[in-house]
């Protein structure tokens, strides 16, 4: 059974990222009355980029070339620790969610250094914004996951989010955590209203402007890593909302979770269609919503456990 789940997990990591990007884009297209690109267009782009010959800026050093690979490697390792299928992760140990967060940190730093390596003021701008918003969103991630750890008494990522909605905790706890984690997704995966992945105006972008100078296989690595990160985040949100319990069998849990992940992608597309990107000065306020949401969950847990004692 474990071998099967590992195989499914790996398959999800390979297939889901491109599909999720396709679903978000399709949702936006339908909402705007367009037909939209094929669902697996992102995969075609990926293959095309792999064949391309890269162009490097004369200013750059080895950091620019190795950076994207570090980004992808750290995201892949974190994906092996994260319960994309609900209650299961191939590698699982106590406080592995801390490792996931810090692996993302490593990838982020590699990407920001790659951006600064070009000496372009636009890319510096993107790196600065990425650093600022990710530092602000970090407490929200830890509040949500720490609250779930406290509420469930579990210490591994798979168990603490996997027990989310079915745990003994009052419903407000997983709900508030899911809200916080959804905002974390929007920041980490560079989605509207924090960032706009489609604009071509460098002044307003965050993620896209950091990878302006990357091309060919490096760009492919960065785009896959970014889609993979969105899959992980969507998987966590889905796992927290997953209504099934452990008794229902891991395969059923996984199936429902994948369906929920697709649902999260549709939700991301809805938000992108209905809301404009926030002014950059307003982003910290939006991120603060996630922190407050995490705090609400934490206080609800404290009240519940303190009262039950």
């Amino acid at each position: 059974m474990t071998a099967l789940l590992v195989a499914l997990h790996l398959a999800a990591l390979l297939g889901l990222p491109f599909l999720l990007v396709g679903i978000v884009n399709r949702t936006k297209a339908l909402w705007a009355g367009r037909k939209g690109p094929r669902l697996l267009q992102a995969f075609s782009d990926f293959r095309r980029l792999l064949r391309k010959r890269p162009v490097y800026s004369e200013v750059t050093t080895a950091i620019f070339r190795v950076g994207p690979l570090v980004v992808l490697a750290s995201t892949i390792v974190s994906a092996l620790l994260a319960p994309v299928l609900g209650r299961f992760a191939p590698i699982s140990f106590h406080y592995d969610f801390v490792a996931v967060a810090y692996l993302w940190g490593l990838g982020r730093m590699a990407m920001m250094l790659g951006a600064l390596d070009t000496g372009s003021s636009f890319e510096g701008m993107g790196a600065s914004r990425e650093a600022t918003y990710s530092a602000l969103v970090e407490p929200a991630l830890f509040l949500a996951l720490g609250t779930l750890a406290a509420a469930t008494g579990h210490a591994t990522f798979a168990e603490l989010v996997g027990a989310g909605a079915r745990g003994a905790a009052p419903a407000i706890v997983p709900l508030a955590c899911a809200v916080a984690l959804f905002v974390v997704l929007q920041v980490e995966a560079a989605r509207v209203p924090v960032d706009d992945p489609t604009t071509h105006l460098e002044l307003t972008m965050i993620h896209e402007v950091m990878i302006l100078d990357h091309s060919g296989p490096e760009l492919a690595a960065l785009q896959y890593a970014s889609a993979l990160k969105m899959t992980i985040c969507a998987g966590i949100v889905a796992a927290v909302l997953n209504p099934l319990s452990a008794a229902d069998g891991p395969l059923l849990v996984a199936a429902v979770n994948v369906a929920l992940v697709l649902g999260v992608a549709v939700a991301v597309g809805f938000v992108e269609s209905l809301v404009a990107r926030l002014r950059l000065a307003a982003v910290p306020t939006y991120v603060f919503v996630a922190v407050v949401s995490g705090l609400v969950a934490l206080l609800a847990t404290a009240g519940w456990q303190g009262g039950a004692r």
Partner: peptide
């Protein structure tokens, strides 16, 4: 081989 060019 990769090409070298100025930063965009």
């Amino acid at each position: 081989p990769a090409r070298r060019h100025v930063t965009w």
